[in-house]
Design a protein around this nucleic acid. Structure first.
Length: 421
RNA sequence: GGAGAGGUGUCCGAGUGGUUUAAGGAGCACGCCUGGAAAGUGUGUGUACGCCAAAAACGUACCGAGGGUUCGAAUCCCUCUCUCUCCGCCA
């Protein structure tokens, strides 16, 4: 959520910045609503103050054994007015609040201005796509040939956009999770956490998925729980309604992720790129506001390190104003080279949310200089999306025979095996 | 799932309708005392929002959450939630 005071006082600036995201803010009606709010709030508080004063008087009169009837009559008059005024104020505030909750974050000044992913800015590349001297297969054909990756049986058990893995491939998938968790916790200073895979609506509002993006989530109505679309939700909400004394705090967490992919019909229907259920290792940081942009570079580097150890070619892209996510002020995507598609595809997204999520969550830290609780900054990034990493390994490490070589850093997690198939 | 007990500020803890403006204690901050410290002692000590150019002052709200009763609710009623104890079930 944007700072309501900032929106109020710098409305034109806010509108201008939101416009770069392709969003038109109706400043006139917002100003109008804000003026109504101000009038109504002042009036309500005056009436409340008057009621409190008279009620106290009644108490004092009673204590002295005096007649309270005239004062009671006076306050009775107030009652109706006050009730109406309170109701009106609540209605206005609900409207204002809903608008604020559905406004996206303001992009940082360093974010390239643009309309769509076409305008994203490539920052750097690492590694060279390998030239293979045989006909390259994609992961679907490779998996089918190995009899280790099966979409048909998953469709039977559940439906479209699910996968079943067997044998060496299932194990490689698990090895990737182990490797990533070990790397980030042992070399990058993250604390490993285990969290619930179902969350309540407050948590989703805290990180920004609700109220606007309910359609993207799997919902369990009986308990009003939601399956998490990313570990970002439970892990970031660890700081909700808390005052942290020590910053930074860095967490790494492996979870499955569940996404309805509403609106993605017909997109990436082949293979494991876009599934309803996938595994991800997520990095989350809580930092002091002044440190958050340095932390974004650092966190992105941590995610890159995974690809470097796995020797997978990739590039880093700065998302433009039109392509960054709702809650983000700045995002870098890591895109890995997929020989089967002859394309770089997103495998990680690293974002600085500044105080946007913290304000929604009331996540604060105690600033030793002011000794006051202040909003902290939150960041997260995939480190990495496990399913897509598996796809990248299959396609980049494939042999002419259809077997898959195992990257050397993963072999110790695979009982020393060097090849699948 | 059944029965019961609870949730009060940074922490402990009192408070069953009206000077509660949330007692008291601990902690913390700043004084005093001291050669210095401890002890002792005094003062202060939450959050959010509004008003304001801003600050101060002032006002409003906040005792797990949401409703209700009342002129007035931490206190009474209802619903929900979380924690603990016992029983049942269970990986």
């Amino acid at each position: 959520m944007l700072d309501p005071q900032f929106v109020r006082n710098q409305l034109d600036d806010v509108a201008k910045k939101l416009a770069t995201r392709g969003l038109t803010l109706d400043t006139a009606s917002l100003t109008d609503l804000e003026n109504q709010r101000k009038l109504c709030q002042v009036k309500t508080q005056e009436l409340q103050s008057e009621r409190n004063r008279l009620s106290k008087e009644i108490g004092q009169l009673k204590a002295k054994g005096l007649d309270t009837a005239p004062t009671m009559a006076q306050v009775a008059n107030l009652g109706e007015q006050l009730q109406a005024s309170e109701a009106q104020l609540e209605q206005i505030q609900t409207q204002l609040n809903h608008i604020l909750l559905t406004l996206p974050n303001l992009p940082h000044d360093s974010v390239p201005v643009g309309r769509s992913e076409e305008d994203n800015l490539e920052i750097r590349r690492w590694g060279e796509p390998k030239v293979l001297d045989f006909t390259v297969k994609d992961h679907v054909d490779l998996g089918a040939q190995l009899q280790m990756l099966d979409f048909e049986v998953a469709a039977k058990i559940t439906g479209a956009r699910f996968a079943v893995m067997r044998g060496g491939l299932a194990r490689l998938h698990r090895a990737l999770i182990q490797f990533m968790l070990d790397l980030h916790s042992q070399e990058h200073g993250y604390t490993e956490v285990y969290v619930p895979y179902m969350v309540n609506a407050d948590s989703l509002q805290g990180t920004g998925q609700l109220p606007k993006f309910a359609a993207d989530l799997f919902h369990i109505p009986e308990q009003n729980f939601y399956l998490i679309p990313t570990a970002e939700v439970p892990v970031t909400n660890l700081a909700r309604d808390e005052i942290l004394e020590q910053l930074p705090v860095k967490y790494v967490c492996h979870t499955p992720c569940f996404r309805s992919e509403a609106g993605a019909y017909g997109k990436d229907t082949r293979g494991m790129i876009r599934q309803h259920q996938f595994e991800k290792v997520e990095l989350v940081q809580f930092v002091k506001p002044q440190d958050s942009y340095a932390a974004l570079e650092e966190l992105t580097g941590h995610a890159e390190k995974v690809l470097q150890y796995l020797e997978l070619p990739y590039r880093v892209v700065a998302l433009c104003t039109g392509d960054i996510g709702f809650s983000s002020a700045k995002t870098y995507d890591l895109e890995v080279w997929l020989p089967g598609q002859q394309k770089y595809r997103e495998i990680s997204s690293c974002s600085n949310f500044e105080a946007f999520q913290a304000r929604r969550m009331k996540a604060r830290w105690r600033n030793p200089e002011t000794k006051k609780p202040e909003l902290l900054h939150t960041l997260n990034g995939s480190g990495l999306a496990v399913g897509r990493t598996l796809v990248a390994i299959m396609e980049n490490y494939q042999q002419d025979s259809g077997k898959i070589a195992i990257p050397s850093v993963l072999q110790k997690y695979m009982n020393g095996m060097s090849m699948i198939g």
